[in-house]
Simulated assay, not measured.
Amino acid sequence: MIQIFGTEKCKLTRAAQRFFAERRIKVQFINLREKGLSKGELASVARAVGGMRALYAEDSPRVKERGLQYLDPSETRLAELFLEDPMLLRTPIVRDGARAAVGAAEVTWKAFAEATKP
């Protein structure tokens, strides 16, 4: 089952939800305000998208709020930050098993949609 990690207020997250809804594909929505990714999920998604840095929302208000905008964290430190504060993640994260995409990745979403068809 396709999972979408994001927040209700995020335009891109809503766009991902709409994309799959229009194709009548059931998704599981995980609200990052309520629940983050597990350590295993985070590692799997990072592998699929090219590393932790690809998941880092470095220009987000949350980064500035936490005073992290001048920090150049390592992959390990980013993983720790994401596990303690999922709001630092770029959204949406669309995951289909070991495959994942982050941000507006409609080409990848189409591939996920095609793979779910019987």
Rank of each mutant, 00 (worst) to 15 (best):
D72P: 06
A43K: 13
I30M: 09
V45N: 01
L42K: 06
A104K: 07
K117V: 13
R33Q: 15
E75P: 07
A79F: 00
E114R: 01
S60R: 04
R24C: 12
R53T: 12
P118W: 12
E22D: 15
K9S: 15
S44K: 07
A79H: 05
T76L: 09
F19T: 01
G51M: 09
A48P: 03
A111F: 01
G97A: 04
V107S: 00
L89F: 11
G36W: 13
R62F: 09
A98C: 04
I30K: 15
R66P: 01
Q69N: 05
A98H: 11
Q17E: 14
A98F: 05
S60M: 05
L68C: 01
P86Q: 02
S38M: 05
F29Q: 13
Y70V: 07
L78E: 06
P92S: 03
I4P: 11
P118S: 06
G36V: 04
A105G: 05
P118H: 08
K117G: 12
A46Q: 02
A113E: 03
G67L: 06
F5K: 09
T116M: 09
P73D: 04
L55D: 03
R14D: 11
R90P: 01
R77A: 08
F29I: 13
E8P: 15
L83H: 03
P86M: 03
E22M: 09
V107K: 01
E34F: 10
K64H: 11
N31S: 15
T116G: 01
P118C: 01
R77C: 03
F5V: 10
R95V: 12
Y70F: 14
F112E: 00
K35M: 11
A115P: 06
V27L: 13
L71D: 09
E65H: 10
L37W: 10
V94D: 02
T76Q: 11
F82W: 11
V102T: 07
A57N: 14
V63Y: 08
N31H: 14
E84C: 06
A115Q: 08
F5N: 07
A46Y: 11
R90E: 05
I30F: 13
E84F: 07
R62K: 14
T7P: 02
A15R: 10
K11C: 12
E106F: 08
C10Q: 13
F29H: 15
P61F: 04
A115Y: 00
A115R: 02
L81S: 01
A111M: 00
Q3K: 14
G36F: 11
R33T: 14
L78A: 05
F5G: 10
E58Q: 12
V27H: 12
F29N: 14
T116E: 10
Q69T: 05
R24T: 14
L89T: 06
R62G: 07
I2C: 08
L42G: 07
I30A: 07
A48C: 06
L55R: 04
E41A: 07
E106L: 00
R77D: 11
Q28A: 14
R62Y: 10
A21N: 13
E22L: 10
F29W: 15
T76A: 13
P86R: 04
K39T: 11
V102L: 01
F5R: 03
